[in-house]
Amino acid sequence: MKLAAPPLPSLWIAFLISMLLVSSNAAFSPRILQQSTSNSKNYLTNEALWFNQTLDHFSPYDRRQFGQRYYEFLDHFRTPDGPIFLKICGESACNGIPNDYISVLANKFGAAVVSLEHRYYGKSSPFKSLTTENLKYLSSKQALFDLAVFRQYYQESLNSKLNRSNVENPWFVFGVSYSGALSAWFRLKFPHLTCGSLASSAVVLAVYNFTEFDKQIGESAGPECKAVLQEITHLVDQRLASNDKELKAMFGAAEV
Results as ranks from 00 to 15, higher is better:
T79I: 13
G90S: 04
P80I: 05
P60R: 09
Y61T: 15
N52H: 14
D81G: 07
D75T: 11
I102P: 00
N46L: 02
L74D: 15
P98Y: 08
L33D: 01
S125G: 08
I13S: 01
R69E: 11
L11P: 00
L105C: 06
F77Y: 15
Q34P: 00
S59T: 06
L20I: 14
P30S: 12
S124H: 06
A14E: 03
S10P: 00
F85E: 05
I13T: 05
Y101P: 00
S18H: 14
P60Y: 08
I97G: 05
Y70P: 10
I84D: 02
S115D: 00
H57L: 06
I88K: 09
F66D: 05
S115C: 15
F109Q: 03
K41H: 12
N46S: 15
N107M: 07
S125T: 12
F127I: 08
P98F: 11
R119T: 09
S129W: 07
S92L: 08
P80T: 11
P80Y: 08
L11H: 12
I102E: 04
P98I: 10
F15D: 06
D100Y: 09
H76C: 13
P60V: 05
D100A: 12
Q35Y: 10
K108V: 10
I88R: 11
L16F: 10
N95T: 14
A106L: 08
L21M: 15
F127N: 05
